[in-house]
Simulated assay, not measured.
Amino acid sequence: MSALAVTGSPLWYAARAGGTLALLLLTATVVLGIVAGGRGAPRRIGRFELGLLHRNVALLGSAFLALHVVTAVLDPFVRLGWAVAVVPFAASYRPLWLGLGTVACDLLLAVLITTALRRRLGVRRWKAVHRLAYAAWPLAVFHAAGTGTDTRLPLQLWLYAGCVAAVAGAVGLRLATAGPGRLAGRVTAAVTAAAVPVALTVFLADGPLQPGWAHRAATTAFLLGGGR
Rank of each mutant, 00 (worst) to 15 (best):
residue 1 M to K: 01
residue 1 M to L: 06
residue 2 S to K: 02
residue 3 A to N: 03
residue 3 A to E: 13
residue 3 A to T: 04
residue 5 A to C: 00
residue 7 T to P: 14
residue 10 P to S: 11
residue 10 P to H: 12
residue 10 P to E: 12
residue 10 P to F: 10
residue 11 L to D: 00
residue 13 Y to M: 12
residue 14 A to N: 01
residue 15 A to M: 07
residue 17 A to E: 02
residue 18 G to H: 11
residue 20 T to H: 06
residue 20 T to K: 00
residue 22 A to I: 08
residue 22 A to S: 09
residue 22 A to R: 00
residue 23 L to Y: 13
residue 23 L to V: 13
residue 25 L to S: 08
residue 25 L to P: 00
residue 27 T to G: 13
residue 28 A to G: 13
residue 28 A to N: 04
residue 29 T to W: 07
residue 31 V to S: 12
residue 34 I to Y: 06
residue 34 I to F: 06
residue 37 G to Q: 15
residue 39 R to Y: 03
residue 39 R to N: 14
residue 40 G to V: 14
residue 40 G to R: 15
residue 41 A to Q: 11
residue 45 I to M: 14
residue 46 G to D: 13
residue 49 E to Q: 14
residue 50 L to H: 06
residue 50 L to V: 10
residue 50 L to Y: 10
residue 51 G to A: 07
residue 54 H to V: 07
residue 54 H to A: 10
residue 55 R to P: 03
residue 55 R to S: 14
residue 57 V to T: 14
residue 58 A to Q: 05
residue 60 L to E: 02
residue 61 G to P: 13
residue 62 S to P: 01
residue 64 F to S: 08
residue 65 L to P: 04
residue 67 L to Y: 09
residue 69 V to W: 14
residue 70 V to I: 13
residue 73 V to H: 06
residue 74 L to T: 05
residue 74 L to D: 11
residue 74 L to M: 14
residue 75 D to A: 10
residue 80 L to Y: 13
residue 81 G to E: 01
residue 81 G to A: 10
residue 82 W to V: 15
residue 83 A to K: 14
residue 83 A to W: 15
residue 85 A to I: 10
residue 86 V to R: 01
residue 87 V to T: 03
residue 89 F to W: 13
residue 89 F to V: 12
residue 89 F to N: 09
residue 92 S to L: 11
residue 94 R to H: 07
residue 102 T to L: 05
residue 102 T to I: 02
residue 102 T to Y: 05
residue 103 V to T: 00
residue 105 C to F: 10
residue 106 D to G: 02
residue 107 L to W: 05
residue 107 L to D: 02
residue 107 L to M: 11
residue 109 L to V: 14
residue 111 V to C: 10
residue 114 T to Q: 05
residue 114 T to I: 08
residue 117 L to T: 03
residue 117 L to W: 13
residue 117 L to N: 04
residue 118 R to A: 09
residue 122 G to K: 05
residue 123 V to I: 06
residue 128 A to K: 07
residue 128 A to E: 05
residue 129 V to L: 08
residue 130 H to K: 11
residue 130 H to P: 00
residue 131 R to W: 10
residue 131 R to Y: 09
residue 131 R to F: 02
residue 136 A to I: 03
residue 138 P to R: 02
residue 140 A to Q: 01
residue 142 F to H: 05
residue 147 T to N: 06
residue 149 T to Q: 02
residue 150 D to W: 01
residue 151 T to R: 00
residue 151 T to A: 07
residue 152 R to T: 03
residue 152 R to V: 04
residue 155 L to G: 02
residue 155 L to I: 09
residue 159 L to F: 09
residue 160 Y to G: 03
residue 161 A to F: 06
residue 162 G to L: 11
residue 162 G to I: 12
residue 163 C to Y: 00
residue 164 V to L: 15
residue 169 G to K: 05
residue 172 G to H: 11
residue 174 R to M: 06
residue 174 R to W: 07
residue 175 L to Y: 07
residue 178 A to I: 08
residue 178 A to W: 14
residue 179 G to A: 13
residue 181 G to H: 09
residue 187 V to Y: 08
residue 188 T to I: 08
residue 195 A to R: 11
residue 197 P to M: 09
residue 199 A to G: 06
residue 204 L to I: 03
residue 204 L to R: 01
residue 205 A to W: 06
residue 207 G to F: 15
residue 208 P to F: 07
residue 209 L to F: 08
residue 214 A to I: 12
residue 214 A to P: 15
residue 215 H to K: 15
residue 215 H to T: 15
residue 216 R to I: 15
residue 219 T to C: 13
residue 220 T to D: 14
residue 224 L to E: 04
residue 225 G to R: 10
